[in-house]
């Protein structure tokens, strides 16, 4: 049975009046995360925007326990918490890592890979805003080709690192991609992940109005366009079985995908792109889809 918006709990553990920018996807993501998992949750946050938007002493906008930790250490710290809880005999507590893309695909990758290899009982959520937004929009491994950042002023030359598939290569029980524009899909995946024992990885695509240079009201619209153009693909790998989720499952046919142009033309970070660059982005997306279609035809990938 699919979840409905009306069935979601009214309670929020992520409180209003926090210092996030207007239209912030990280704030929305944290709100949905805590709404889903409830108060019996310990969240580990490395250096990222979410460290700042917890608010300054003596107030905090988080009505749940948070461990703030160094960039590279989030998955390792969460592993320690899981072990400690197991020793204390407390098995009903969710241990969640909430990390940005820099703290996941670049700096935190080593600890994350280690935790995945040990199959620690963690829900790892990476909210991917495609650059180091907290420190002033520097490029990360998750920044897409052509995107302007303060360290790639003529546009990034390399393509985005495909971390969900790297995590799937670890053979962990659950890997999923989600988008902030599809909250029911994200919440369903979180609920599923919290019930599985072992390492769970969810990659949450999060359009950032400040860093991507678009009006704050367009956060959800741009996230949706990323999915409908096929730039971001919603899928899950559960015990090795690869499955596309709606609406990505109807985008298998190339003609049903919107052209990537409709996604990038409303973002300031892509405003300098030439026709050649846009074609390259489109080719990359089509190549990625060929990979996903191959995985889909294999079915059980590990």
């Amino acid at each position: 049975m699919s979840l409905k918006i009306k069935d979601l709990p009214i309670e929020d553990y992520w409180l209003s009046g926090n210092p996030s920018c207007p239209g912030c996807p990280a704030s929305l993501g944290l709100r949905l995360l805590m709404k889903t998992l409830g108060p019996k949750t310990i969240v580990v946050i490395p250096a990222c925007c979410s460290t700042i938007i917890q608010g300054a002493y003596p107030k905090t906008s988080a009505n749940f326990p948070i461990l703030n930790i160094a960039f590279a250490a989030s998955a390792a710290a969460a592993s320690g918490i899981v072990e400690a809880l197991e020793l204390k005999g407390r098995s009903n507590v969710n241990v969640v890592v909430w990390a940005g893309d820099g703290g996941t695909v670049d700096i935190g990758l080593q600890a994350l890979s280690g935790a995945a290899e040990r199959n620690e009982n963690i829900v790892y959520v990476c909210y991917d805003n495609e650059a180091y937004m907290n420190t002033g929009i520097q490029r990360s491994g998750a920044t897409p080709y052509g995107a302007w950042t303060t360290t790639t002023i003529t546009g990034k030359k390399e393509h985005k690192k495909n971390l969900p598939l790297i995590m799937a290569a670890h053979g962990i029980p659950y890997v999923a991609t989600a988008s902030i524009s599809y909250p029911i899909d994200f919440i369903t995946k979180l609920k599923k992940a919290s019930k599985i024992y072992g390492m769970k990885y969810i990659h949450l695509h999060s359009p950032c109005p400040t860093g991507w240079r678009f009006p704050s009201s367009k956060t959800i619209e741009i996230g949706r366009l990323a999915v409908l153009t096929g730039t971001w693909v919603l899928y899950e790998v559960e015990n090795g079985i690869f499955k596309l989720n709606p609406p990505s499952n109807v985008l298998i046919d190339r003609n049903k995908r919107k052209p990537v142009r409709s996604y990038i033309k409303i973002q300031g970070r892509f405003s300098h792109l030439t026709e050649k660059n846009i074609d390259e982005l489109q080719r990359y997306i089509d190549r990625q889809w060929e990979t996903y279609l191959k995985l889909l035809s294999i079915g059980k990938i590990y």
Partner: peptide, 27 residues
Amino acid sequence: IYCPEGTVIRINDSVDINYMYCKGCGI
């Protein structure tokens, strides 16, 4: 469900806005 701040207050099925903390993002 889309309000990043949680400033859209839900009372059963109807909604209202908490203007004290709404940042006016327009989502």
